[in-house]
Amino acid sequence: MTVRVLLVDDDPMVLEFLRTILTASPELDVISTAEDGAAAVEEVLRHRPDVVLMDLRMPDVDGVRATAEIRKLDNPPFVVVMTTFDTDEQVRAALAVGASGYLLKSTPPEALAHLVLAAATGASVLSPETLQRLQTPAQAPLDPRIARLPDRDREILVALGEGLSNASIARRLYLSEGTVKGLVSRLMTTLDCDNRTQLALLSQGVFENRNR
């Protein structure tokens, strides 16, 4: 089944580069592009893509506002933001409004198609380097909601912070993949998170408190 992708960036050269990379995969179909956030929302309504690859810094309607509007739609697509190391605040804001992951613009071309395909399955698409920058600082107190979690749920949270898939978590914890899926869903509800990426950002507190 082909994954339908919308590309959003205010630089036409970036759009063309991304289109070239992604259309090389027979599993991906770049159905449209947009050069600002307002146009991105219109294109989502018009074409109903599976994944939106969203730039953050754009004039007028930026990527955060566009992501928020897209995620409020019925049956919204997954939104993966693209960023550089100097946009931590915008990345946090995008994740808070429902982006399911982020990629650095320096992501190797050979990895990009694989990551977009992963995003289409609902998996978190995380850059390990920036995940470390965005996770809760070691000195921050443990979220009381996390402190009340059973040990098994904490292990799930730690694994999500490592970027593991449901299948990998199931193998590590000797559970069925269906059980892991259910536990992740329950964690989202308990911790008031919209997706796996938001859960992953909460995991650092578990790491730090477990190692004290």
Results as ranks from 00 to 15, higher is better:
55 D>R: 10
204 Q>V: 01
35 E>P: 03
186 R>K: 12
178 G>S: 14
61 V>R: 07
112 L>V: 05
74 D>A: 15
26 P>G: 04
75 N>W: 11
68 A>Y: 09
27 E>R: 11
39 A>S: 15
179 T>R: 07
74 D>R: 15
143 D>T: 15
170 A>R: 05
98 G>Q: 09
161 G>I: 06
17 F>P: 15
47 H>C: 07
70 I>P: 02
173 L>E: 04
129 E>I: 04
201 L>T: 14
52 V>L: 12
146 I>T: 06
138 A>T: 10
188 M>W: 03
77 P>E: 02
170 A>P: 00
147 A>N: 10
26 P>W: 00
10 D>K: 09
2 T>S: 10
182 G>F: 00
23 T>N: 12
167 A>T: 13
122 G>C: 12
141 P>G: 07
52 V>S: 09
140 A>S: 12
14 V>D: 07
108 P>H: 06
1 M>T: 03
209 N>R: 13
13 M>P: 02
126 L>V: 07
192 D>H: 11
140 A>Q: 14
23 T>M: 07
123 A>N: 07
93 A>M: 05
118 A>T: 15
25 S>I: 13
176 S>I: 15
95 L>G: 08
69 E>F: 11
205 G>P: 06
51 V>S: 01
81 V>P: 01
146 I>K: 01
155 E>F: 03
114 H>R: 11
192 D>Q: 12
20 T>E: 14
87 T>V: 02
154 R>S: 04
81 V>D: 02
72 K>M: 12
112 L>C: 07
157 L>K: 13
57 R>M: 10
118 A>R: 14
52 V>W: 05
3 V>D: 00
200 A>R: 03
59 P>V: 15
6 L>P: 04
72 K>L: 13
37 G>M: 05
207 F>C: 05
44 V>P: 01
132 Q>S: 13
154 R>Y: 01
2 T>G: 04
101 G>D: 08
23 T>A: 07
179 T>H: 02
116 V>Q: 05
12 P>D: 04
181 K>T: 12
62 D>F: 03
145 R>K: 09
135 Q>R: 13
88 D>L: 14
175 L>H: 02
62 D>C: 06
187 L>F: 08
206 V>F: 00
180 V>A: 14
38 A>Q: 10
18 L>Q: 08
185 S>T: 13
195 N>P: 04
177 E>H: 02
6 L>A: 11
160 L>F: 03
36 D>M: 03
118 A>G: 08
119 A>Q: 12
185 S>G: 14
143 D>H: 14
81 V>R: 01
16 E>Q: 11
56 L>G: 11
2 T>I: 06
19 R>N: 09
141 P>K: 06
81 V>Y: 00
85 F>N: 06
91 V>N: 04
45 L>G: 06
87 T>M: 10
190 T>K: 03
76 P>W: 03
126 L>F: 12
153 D>F: 04
178 G>M: 09
107 T>H: 09
162 E>C: 08
148 R>N: 02
161 G>K: 10
64 V>N: 08
177 E>L: 02
50 D>P: 09
98 G>P: 05
1 M>G: 09
112 L>M: 12
166 N>P: 05
180 V>C: 13
99 A>Q: 06
149 L>N: 05
193 C>H: 03
143 D>V: 15
43 E>K: 15
41 V>E: 01
197 T>K: 04
71 R>A: 10
68 A>D: 13
11 D>A: 15
93 A>G: 05
33 T>D: 02
21 I>D: 14
49 P>A: 06
182 G>P: 01
175 L>A: 07
149 L>F: 09
142 L>I: 11
96 A>M: 05
